[in-house]
Nucleic acid binder design. Structure first.
Lengths: 209, 209, 209, 209
DNA sequence: AATGAATGAGTTTTCATTCAT
DNA sequence: TATGAATGAAAACTCATTCAT
C-alpha cells in the first residue's frame, strides 16, 4: 500500500477547536501567498498570522507543501462547485445558450479570488501534480466534451475530443488572461462574453443557410 | 535616475575567456532550471554545473534573479526571432494561409525548448516584469492585430482589438497546452493545426455563400 | 514612525531558558571581541562559543551589530551605574575631595573590563551613535558641570561649560590612557590620582593666599 | 633575521610611473577610508578608485593592511613634521608661550585631515602596533618631557615623567575631542587655546606670589 | 610591468522542522 | 494538546588574493 503522501493533512480535526485552528492556518496561508508570494510564505509566518504556535501548525500539516495543497484544494473546490453546477445545467440548453453560459461561468470562476488564483496558477506546479490548475482544466474539458457528445448531430465538428480541447482551452485562456492581465476588458464583460460566444459558435456550428 | 535593477548583468564580458564563462553560466542556469526548478537552482549549484567558481558567477551576475533573467532573455529572443519573421511574412498571404502559418509558428515556438518554456512560464513572475511571457504575448497580439487591420475588408469581426486578443490568446493557449501538457496531440500536429485554423477562421471570416 | 534600527534585539527573552541563551550570546560576543577583535567576531563563532546554534542567535539578534550593541550597552550600564553614584555623592563634598573622588572613579570605571573597554573604544563607531563612548563622556561632563555650578563661588574659572569640558575630557583621557596603554602607572594608582587631582584643582581653584 | 613584516611596501618604486601608481593607491585608500570606513575599503575598490588594476595593487602592496599602514604613515608624517618643528622651536620660549604654542599646534595637527584622523584613531589598532596614533602620542610626550626638564627649576611639579604624561595626554585629548566631536568649540579657537593654556600652567607653575 | 579573470574560503542569514516543557 | 525555544542545513554573497595572458 502506498504511503500517505506528505501533502495530506495529518489528522481529520474532528473537534471544533481543531477545526478552527485548521481553518485559520489555511486562511493565513492563502493571505500570505497572495500578499507575499510562495517564496516568502514561511511556516513561521503562517503560524504567526494564524495566531497559532509553530508547533501546532505541524500538528495538523506535516509540511509547508501540505498547507499550500490545502489552499489549492479549497480554492479548486470553490471553483469546481460553481463550474460543475453550471456545466450540468447547460445539458438541456441549446448550443448558443450553453456556450454563453460556459463562457460566463469561466470568467466568473476566475473572479472568485483572482489574486490567489494568479499565485496558484503561476507558482504552484511545484506542489503535487494533480492538485494544480491543470486538473481543473481537465475536468472542465471532460464536462464540456460530454455536452458536445449529447449534441453531436448539431455540430459541424467531428473529432469531439479535439473540439472539446480547443474550446475548453480557449475559453479558459480567455477568461484567465482577461481576469488576470487585462482587467480593463471586464469593464464590459458582456461584450467579452458575446465575442467569445460567437468565437466558439463559429467553430462548432455549421454555417447558417 | 532609476537604480539599476538587480536583474541586470554586472559587467559585459569582453575577452573570449570571460565570454565563455558567461555563456557557461547561462547555459547551466537553464539546465538546472529545467532539471530541478527555480527553487532548487542555487547560485552555488549553478556555478558548480557551469564549472566556474562562485566568485566568477557574482562577477557577472549580481543575483540568482539576474541569471534567470538572462535565461529568459535568451529564450525569448529565440522565440521572437522566429515568430516575428513568420508574422511579417504572412502580411502578403490570404487569410486562410496566414492563420495556418500563425498557428504553426505558435506551436513551433513552444517546441523550441518546451521544458525550459514550461519552467519559465510557470515561475517567471518573480523576476522582472518586462521580460516575462506576457510581454511576448503582447507582441504577438500586436503583430497579429496589424495583420487583421490590413485585411479588415475581408473579415466579419468589427472590433479588431478584441478580435486580435481573442485569436492571439487562443492560439497561444492551444499551442502552450498542447506542447506542455498534451504531447499526445502533437503526434498528429497537422491535424491540430488544421483544427485550430478552422477554429480561428470560423470566427474571423464571414460565412461562405 | 522610524524603522526599528537593526541594532535592536529582536525579541525579549521571557522564559528562563531563553534568558540563558541571550546571556550566553552577549557574554560570548564580549569574549570574542576581546580575544579577536571586531572583524574576527563572526556570528558563527559567537554562536559557537556561546554553545548555541546559529539559528538561535538570529532569533534574538538580527545582526552582528545588534550583538555588539548589546555588549556595549551592558558595559556602559556597568560603568555609568558606578560613575553616576559617585558623581552624585560628591555633591556635598568640598572641591578637593570631590575632584579626587571623580578622578578615582574615572580610573575605577575604566578598570571594570579594560580589554573590552579598549575594543569598544576603538571600534565602536560602526555600531549605533547613541550608545558609543561619546554618550558616556557627555553624561560625565553634564554631571561634573552640575557640580561646578553648585560651587561657582569657590572657583576661579568663569565659563563653567568650558571648564567642565576641559576637566571631564582630561580626566577621562588620563584614566583611559593610563588604564589602557600605561598600566605601569597604575602600580601606584594613588600617586596618579593625587597628581591628577592637583592638576584639576590648580585650574579650578583660585591660588591660595 | 626577522622576515619583513607584511605591512611594508613591496618595492621602492623608483621610476616616476611607479611612484605615481603608488601615490594614487595611497590616496585612493585614504579617500575610501574616509568615505566608507575600514570595512568597506576593499582592495578591488581601492584599485578601482586609483585607476589601477588589482594586479598592480598587489605588485606594490602585499596586503590590504600594508596599504592602510601606508596611509597611516603618510598622515603621521604630516602631523609629526609640524609638531616636531613647533616643539623644537619652543625650547627657547618661556613656559607660558611654550605651552600656548604646544596647545595650538596640537589643535592644528588634528585639523590637518580630521575625517581621516578620526577613522585612523577609531579603527586602526588592528593594523600594526607601532604605527597607530599611540606612537604619535608617545613622541609628543617625549618631546614635551624634554622641554619640562630644561625648565625644571621653574616648575612646581617634581615627577617630570608623570607631569609630561598628564600634560601631553590632556592636551591631546582636548584637541582631539574638540576637533572631532565638538567642532562648535573651534568657532572661537583662541578662547579654547587660552583656557587650555591656563589649565596646564595652573598645574605646572608655582602659585604666584 | 600591467591586466583583469578567476578563485574559494569564509561570512551573514533564513527557514522548515523537531522536541523538551 | 499546545507552546515556542532550539536546531542546522543550506542559501546568497563578498573580498583578499593569485596567476595566466
Amino acid at each position: 500500500m502506498a504511503r500517505k503522501p506528505l501533502t495530506n493533512p495529518r489528522k481529520e480535526a474532528s473537534q471544533a477547536r481543531s477545526r478552527a485552528t485548521v481553518d485559520a492556518l489555511v486562511e493565513a496561508t492563502a493571505r500570505i501567498l497572495v500578499r507575499d508570494g510562495f517564496d516568502k510564505a514561511s511556516t513561521n509566518r503562517i503560524a504567526d498570522m494564524a495566531g497559532v504556535s509553530i508547533g501546532s501548525l505541524y500538528q495538523y500539516y506535516p509540511s509547508k507543501e501540505a498547507l499550500v495543497a490545502a489552499v489549492i484544494d479549497r480554492h479548486n473546490r470553490q471553483i469546481m462547485r460553481r463550474v460543475r453546477t453550471v456545466l450540468t445545467e447547460i445539458a438541456s440548453l441549446p448550443i448558443e445558450s450553453a456556450v454563453r453560459r460556459a463562457v460566463a461561468v469561466a470568467i466568473e470562476a476566475h473572479r472568485i479570488d483572482p489574486r490567489l488564483h494568479r499565485v496558484l496558477a503561476e507558482q504552484i506546479p511545484r506542489v503535487g501534480q494533480l492538485q494544480n490548475v491543470e486538473a481543473l482544466n481537465r475536468e472542465g474539458y471532460a464536462l464540456f466534451r460530454g455536452y458536445l457528445e449529447s449534441r453531436r448531430g448539431e455540430l459541424r465538428v467531428t473529432d469531439l475530443g479535439l473540439a472539446a480541447f480547443v474550446c475548453a482551452t480557449s475559453i479558459e485562456a480567455l477568461a484567465h488572461t482577461a481576469v488576470l492581465y487585462h482587467t480593463e476588458m471586464l469593464l464590459d464583460a458582456e461584450a467579452l462574453i458575446e465575442e467569445a460566444t460567437r468565437f466558439i459558435l463559429g467553430y462548432l456550428q455549421p454555417p447558417p443557410g
